[in-house]
Design a protein around this nucleic acid. Sequence first.
DNA 1: CTGAAAGCGCTAACAC
DNA 2: GTGTTAGCGCTTTCAG
Lengths: 339, 339
Amino acid sequence: MKSGLVTIKDIARELNISASTVSRALKNHPDISEETKRAVNELAQKLNYQPNAVALSLKQRRSHTIGVIIPEIVHYFFSSVISGIEDVAYDAGFNVIICQSNERYEREVANARTLLASRVDGVLVSVSKHTEDFQHLHNLQDNNIPLVFYDRIVPGLEADQVIIDDLDASYRATRHLIETGRKRIVHFAGPQKLLIGRQRKDGYVKALEEAGLEVDPSLIIEADSFEKARLAVMRLLNEKKKFDGVFATNDLTAIGAMQTIQKRGFKIPDEIAVVGFSDGRFSGITDPTLTSVDQHGYEMGTVATEMLLRRITSENSDYPYETRVLNADLIVRGSSVFL
Amino acid sequence: MKSGLVTIKDIARELNISASTVSRALKNHPDISEETKRAVNELAQKLNYQPNAVALSLKQRRSHTIGVIIPEIVHYFFSSVISGIEDVAYDAGFNVIICQSNERYEREVANARTLLASRVDGVLVSVSKHTEDFQHLHNLQDNNIPLVFYDRIVPGLEADQVIIDDLDASYRATRHLIETGRKRIVHFAGPQKLLIGRQRKDGYVKALEEAGLEVDPSLIIEADSFEKARLAVMRLLNEKKKFDGVFATNDLTAIGAMQTIQKRGFKIPDEIAVVGFSDGRFSGITDPTLTSVDQHGYEMGTVATEMLLRRITSENSDYPYETRVLNADLIVRGSSVFL
DNA sequence: CTGAAAGCGCTAACAC
DNA sequence: GTGTTAGCGCTTTCAG
């Protein structure tokens, strides 16, 4: 005797009318008399009737649910994205099923299967770092489930996409250092086999070149973690390399650099300025606070969801795929200028 | 022409057999001949048949989906909890719908309604800070949807619960400071109207008393944020209060304290030791690294989900409600001892 | 203005 | 071994 949940039939029986009348009354259908409507709505209220979304989904072949495939929720950026997704989806009357791939390909494939089985109306996806085969995503598309990629896109796949303009953001971050008088700027770069790593480096190079500054390869170091930054800074200082600025590919790297620089007796930002990228969580609690790029995860979530809902709800959804490029903002704090 | 998704009927038609035979063949029913099974499974594979979970839910009045109401996903602790929930749920063949209340009561009520409409089989809930009326949760229970509370529990409600032993964790954190020789320990406490705030203070007091140390009320200060800690430390130092240890109700508060202590020229841990509580994200990147309590969010998620699934899948689910109390571990790092 | 009937995709008694 | 039928809860023609 599970589900004591009241159905439309219960209301019909009680009122001695048909289920279809109840259904119509509840949706305020013009054909139904005011009186019947009132009676139905009153009873529904009293019995605490909740429409069964499952039955609706089956009937309408539309679940009003969107799926989200996300690498790892624990990252501030991704959890912000989720907030953006949820807000837009709920406002439009859609539910959200979130699936973490945990950066694992097999899990991502399982996620796609789950979402397909749940008959979600569309999927937002950011692929795992190890995804190289895209059959599971094609599979969704083959079944007429629209996809929107956010942040981690898949070059080959035909779909809507939302990304951050990494190159431009890096360019602006680096230019900020240049404009505040820095001449020899170290770049701690991400893996160059990842698009994101290359773009951030390219933005850095572009800013230097535009300003007529030398691009010294020995100042570009592949280091994208707290620990790697510490080691790299120590090496630079031991080698008596001169530098007055650091632009790091993420905040943790920037913080590792900051700490080591300070430990070795240099003042930030007086002698060396430091700028990070994204993450968002840490920038306020360092000393000095960290100048960094805000990736606007929330906005990315809202934009991606709007694009998806548009495709889901459009009569004709075969308009061309679109790529939205969001701007990231440089947030200037104490690690690059005196506040 | 939405849903090109293949159904059991498509397979039946193609093979000139009935839908029920297909259904049985797919679930490897003993009555069905090997030959038929093979043919069905082959075609299912070829057509990439995916069972329609929506139809199943309707039929079985069981969605194999659990709902999660969570205050804010952006906190490391809560996102860890989600990972734990997902892992256990997926292993058991359950989907997860996550709803953020964003610490707002109205949103939480809406979440409960959504989950009810989706006919989830059970709900994991951590109430928002502002929830004082519990009708929406009773409503779920009235509809035979089992609830398990995690972390933020509701004293009055009859339901399973999973919590952290905050008192014990604080006690151990404080005792650690005492055992490493601290005699005058400041406590930056959380709001005393919250259970969590009181318990953490009580653990601190208990450790002091047990060690025969004076409990000086002027060393117990309500401060639970980065900024409040900064101000409080400045005040203490300006008043020339002597103290050699700090136990803060959360990590951000501890970090605010650390920074200010260091700025005023005191060495950590030499002159003053600092211990935080939870959060988990920041403890590794401070200088020195922060001794703190690990709240084991992932474990909390797994335990809560196991309790919920047990209630969902039990024949007889009216066994007594249970409260599980998890231990939190003190992680000793550089802010309290020399490593 | 309201009711009867069919059907969304699937399963499970009940036939044969 | 397999098919027929009914039904999960709801909407929606089509009748009246």
